[in-house]
Design a protein around this nucleic acid. Structure first.
Lengths: 164, 164
DNA sequence: TGCAAATGGTTTCATATGTAACTATAACGG
DNA sequence: CCGTTATAGTTACATATGAAACCATTTGCA
């Protein structure tokens, strides 16, 4: 262990002015990002290696499992990803035979996307995993806290009203 | 507006089994990541362009503002970044004359890091900005919600006890 | 001592991601 | 109709990020 550890004093005795440094560990956006990244990473680790499936790809699969025949743009709306990310995720998914892509009748710019059998098979393995992780996360909170967290996230969520 | 929008039914009438698709917008890790990314991005936009300063660099500056003479590894601990990210951030900061790097007496592997005058000048502009953004974020919540959020994040935070 | 293992830090390489430019098709206005 | 503008999606480029290999130094210990 190293000989000296300077005391955790503030403003580094540097100059006359008060520098009011930010305390990262009490800074809300910082804490949010730590928690969020830790959680996402834990979940992703479950399927990332096993299925060679990225987070973005999984999100696309998740919406296609609920809404079939979406276009790439609609997928983007529902996943809060931008269209480039969706395009790339789809390229991999189609390539891997997990999603089928057809052309929309009457608008040949649009794709019509669906999970394939292989896609469904993966979905049906990953979805329960993800839910299990979510439960593990929530298990750290008591019921009251869980309820508050839900409400708070609703309030903080940028209004991103997907079509009903 | 396009002619048809398929109803939001589940499981895509695909096969006999129940597919139990994940509802992303109710999935906690997903919502967390949306909120976190939105907030971080909003803050970063403030200084990113103005000072050509990345989020990682700002975090390094923030800890150096509170603790002078840290080594890179100590910075990494306090920012929850990995050492590669810290190394890179430091390279840019030192290059830009915002952080000074010396060699530790008695352990020549270690660096001894400090903000320079230029670094302090930037810090003193960015820190209040960041705080203002945090206040804006919290303004969306009432007092009770703010308190709960703080407690909840504490509980969800991975135990990452930096040395006192 | 002296040498294996550990530590601080940087570099390398493969991937991921964001922005802007681009292609193709469709919608609109005269 | 025909040119302009808008939309769906992809490509290209630049930058960011993570994992592992890598150097230098220090520590531990026989």
């Amino acid at each position: 262990m190293p000989a000296k550890r300077p005391p955790a004093r503030s403003t580094a005795g540097h100059s006359p002015q008060e520098h009011a440094p930010l305390e990262l560990e009490r800074f809300l956006p910082y804490r949010l990002s730590i928690v969020s990244n830790t959680v996402s990473q834990a979940i992703a680790d479950d399927y990332q290696r096993r299925f060679d499936l990225g987070v973005t790809e999984w999100r696309v699969m998740a919406v296609l499992a609920r809404f079939d025949g979406l276009s790439a743009r609609e997928v983007a709306e529902r996943t809060a990803m931008d269209k480039v990310a969706v395009s790339r995720a789809l390229a991999r998914l189609v390539q891997a035979g997990r999603v089928s892509r057809a052309v929309h009748d009457g608008d040949r710019r649009r794709s019509v996307l669906n999970l394939t059998e292989a896609g469904w098979a993966i979905h049906d393995e990953v979805a329960p995993m993800a839910r299990r992780r979510e439960r593990e996360l929530l298990a750290k909170l008591d019921g009251e806290e869980q309820a508050w967290l839900g409400r708070i996230l609703d309030k903080l969520m940028p209004d991103h009203e997907p079509p009903p």
